[in-house]
Amino acid sequence: MTEISRRAAIGATLALPLAAPSLRAQALTKLRVSVIPVLDVAPLHAAIRHGYFAAEGIEIDTSTTAGGATGLPGVVAGQFRMAFTNTVSALLGVREGLDFRFVAPAVRSQPNPPDSMAILVRKGSGITNGKQLEGKRVASNTRNNIVWLRGMAWIDKTGGEWRKVNAVEVPFPQMADALAGGQIDAGLFSEPFVTAALQAHGDKLERIGWFIHETAPASSVAQYVAMKEDAERNAEVFERFARGLAKGTDWVNERLGKPELLELISGFSRVPVERLRDCAFTVYVKEVTEAEIAEVIATMTKFGLGGRFPEPSQLIFRTAKA
């Protein structure tokens, strides 16, 4: 092989992976969606794997961010067409004047226990309610999100004054160690970290409540959010997304507790299947209702996150309605 042709061959090999995606993109409309690797995005991955989006002529490119909060800012900046986000964070953006719209449903809390979020304390601490948590350190993964809001609501409901609680931020992966080690007095956990904490420190930790289910059963937890302008201008793209996602939701709901679903979730989250088997799941839903958004806004207002919000009916794009 001469030097020139070898160079050309190497050049072509290097250029191939760069050229391939753009060729594919001509066939399918590509949508970039920000997600977090949690059980709640199982329908999205099911729809990708089983070709429900491809059947709608769209290709979903997920961008997983485990720790950071690049989702909503990324939607505003145009890096993502959509972000999977908890309802409170989305509504706080709306309150600050960002034109977010709920374009597709995701999950609600369970109507009956077990729920996917739980408050854990150390065994022997004697803490069983919010009243006893006054002056104590209570951890949520982030302040001012759905976990924090429902945690404060649980403290309020069980007789505590939420303003007297010392709320601290601890990432989910470190929460169990921080609680067992005594750095915090209670943790607001989400699955699969509830199961992991009880498996690893079952002798030291115990669950004293399902804080979302007990304060707001079957309430709004998370949705897919896009910018209003994009949703209105490209409504047809979001309709196709919602249709594909709905099929993914059906697929998941038909396989709750089955190995197929656990393997799917383990595939994208890398959580071992053995742990997922013991996890409590959220409820995968197919619509966002005005009532559930109104309830979140009312609860936010009660716990210091109030402000001027548009009517819930305006915030829910038609693709997310039943």
């Binding site: 997920t62 997983t64 485990a66 989910f172 992966p173 970290f193 989250s269 959580v271």
Partner: peptide, 18 residues
């Protein structure tokens, strides 16, 4: 911090997967 690439993403993903 961002994206699904490289050793950095693997590290965080595994951390969150326990």
């Amino acid at each position: 911090i961002a994206g699904e690439q490289g050793v950095g993403h693997y590290l965080v993903l595994m951390q969150f997967a326990g």
